[in-house]
């Protein structure tokens, strides 16, 4: 992979508890740590088991990371409708917003950000499990930003889950990554 000009990647993933926003962030942070000198992962979630607001921010950087908290992230991945409005405002000019178009119908009005409307939940359902929509988004994020290669995340999936979950579940997660990347290829501008 060629050296990126910008040595900073920063993304906030937001959804509802159970959608896997935090797992997206953990996988990106763990895989990112094999490629970047500095990594931070900051989760915050409501204290309920399912359905509460859940978000995390991941920063990958060659420079020192001054703050893991960022109000205006480079990229936002919005998995649930309630958080769309505020992240439309918060993403930096020139940044990116990923939206699950299978569950969110609203459109972004801003013209200074790149928007990816991706049917992540539908793609996940077609693969056999709605719950891998987070991995679809991770694959899409990596394809769009080239922050790290998809293989780096696959290695982490193997490390974390091999022998602990069914082989079919592991390959389902990897398929979801690839499917997400495919959704982005050829759909860069909007």
């Amino acid at each position: 992979m060629e050296k990126k000009e910008s040595l900073l990647f920063q993304v906030t993933i937001t959804g509802l508890g159970g959608q896997g926003a935090l797992l997206f962030g953990q996988l990106l942070a763990e895989a990112g740590a094999t490629r970047f000198k500095n990594v931070s992962f900051f989760p915050q979630y409501a204290t309920v088991m399912r359905g509460g607001e859940s978000e995390c921010t991941v920063t990958l950087s060659e420079e020192e990371i001054d703050s893991p908290l960022v109000f205006e992230p480079q990229t936002a991945v919005v998995m649930a409708a309630p958080q769309l409005k505020q992240f439309e405002k918060r993403v930096v000019s020139g940044g990116m917003i990923f939206i699950d178009s299978s569950v969110i119908t609203e459109k972004i009005e801003r013209r200074d950000v790149k928007v990816f409307y991706l049917p992540a939940t539908r793609a996940a359902t077609e693969l056999g499990d709605t719950r891998v929509a987070n991995l679809v988004f991770l694959g899409a994020y990596l394809a769009a930003t080239e922050a790290i290669p998809i293989e780096a995340v696959e290695e982490i999936l193997d490390k974390r889950f091999k022998g602990r979950i069914k082989e079919t579940l592991l390959s389902l997660n990897k398929k979801a990554l690839r499917a997400g990347a495919k959704l982005v290829i050829g759909k860069r501008e909007d």
């Binding site: 953990q26 942070a29 740590a33 500095n38 990594v39 931070s40 992962f41 900051f42 989760p43 915050q44 990371i65 893991p68 908290l69």
Partner: peptide, 10 residues
Amino acid sequence: DFILGRMTER
């Protein structure tokens, strides 16, 4: 605190 306890770094 809440932030420092949960944030993850190298």
